[in-house]
Write a protein that binds this DNA or RNA. Structure first.
Length: 279
DNA sequence: CGATTTTGACCAGCGC
DNA sequence: GCGCTGGTCAAAATCG
């Protein structure tokens, strides 16, 4: 956003430019706050009402925006074949799976990801001799996120965690999820598993099948500043919201109105406005 | 003593 | 309609 050619300007111009950039950042923060609020409302409306009313397989329809990432773990594409190959595919979108390498002798079904989970059930399924554990997020009473953890039938040293829903709160260990917004969990190590660092190795990223998610996650890992976190958050929300035509129409109308307001308020500085919204 | 885990029972979707 | 199956409940047990 900041034009590098201004660095050679007079000190007064530099100060003015800095003030202008600060003002633009403040505007972006305000807009981001509004978008976040509306986004959470929309997601809650889409996933909250009746989401867990049924105790049965309609829970497959739950949307998920959380991708978990860490050393020795990797994300499958959101629309893969979930647990069973013969499951219907039409409502599996945005349910993410995470594979975590553990010690084969470790029998615990624990995948630490910065959130606090309460186990509410365990089941032996037909297609896998190892039990499947069911967890609910216990960090916030209203958090709808659930996860299922089961050993891979093919590779006992691999834990497969499936996340359903979106966190409506921050993780209990912000140090783990420093670069990821709420709703994006990060896999950490279980007691018997290989410790997972906060960086992602190239080898682990190679396991990812979706280059878009891979690149986004890699960029997220490199984020250390607030502006970068906001950018990642916007990308995440945009990728899910652009599928909703009514939302995009409403958003376009809102932004258009906002731009018009800005133009009328800052009539002397139309160049800066175009710079902000041309991203 | 509160939080969490375990585990058997129950419920509901799905295929036949 | 019936049986199989996955998901959830809830009481008891365990843990810190």
């Amino acid at each position: 956003m900041h034009n590098p050619t201004h660095e050679t300007d007079q000190p007064d111009d530099v100060t003015e430019e800095l003030n202008r950039v600060k003002w633009e950042n403040k505007k972006l923060n305000d807009m981001l706050t509004i978008v976040c609020t509306n986004y959470n409302d929309l997601i809650q409306r889409q996933t909250g009402d009746g989401l867990f009313n049924s105790r049965k397989r309609k829970s497959d329809e739950i949307e998920n925006f959380g991708n978990v990432i860490g050393k020795n773990s990797f994300v499958h594409r959101c629309c893969d074949d979930y647990w069973s190959p013969d499951r219907p595919k039409e409502f599996k979108s945005n349910v993410s799976r995470v594979h975590v390498r553990i010690d084969p002798s470790d029998t615990s079904l624990v995948v630490k990801d910065g959130y606090q989970w309460r186990k509410y059930g365990q089941k032996v399924t037909r297609d896998n001799p190892s039990p499947r554990a069911y967890y609910k997020c216990s960090l916030a009473p209203t958090c709808p996120v659930k996860k299922k953890v089961q050993r891979s039938a093919d590779d006992p040293s691999l834990l497969v965690a499936t996340y359903e829903g979106q966190h409506n709160h921050l993780p209990s260990r912000p140090d783990i999820s420093v670069a990821l917004p709420p709703g994006v969990a990060r896999a950490n190590s279980s007691p018997g598993s290989t410790p997972i660092a906060c960086s992602v190795s190239a080898a682990s990223l190679d396991h990812m099948t979706d280059p878009i998610i891979c690149s986004k996650i890699q960029s997220a890992i490199e984020i250390t500043e607030n502006s970068a976190i906001q950018q990642f958050l916007v990308e995440k929300m945009a990728s899910s919201l652009t599928r909703n035509h009514s939302f995009t129409a409403a958003l376009a109308a809102a932004i258009t109105g906002r731009i018009l307001d800005d133009v009328s308020e800052d009539n002397d500085d139309s160049e800066s406005n175009s710079r902000v919204f041309s991203v």
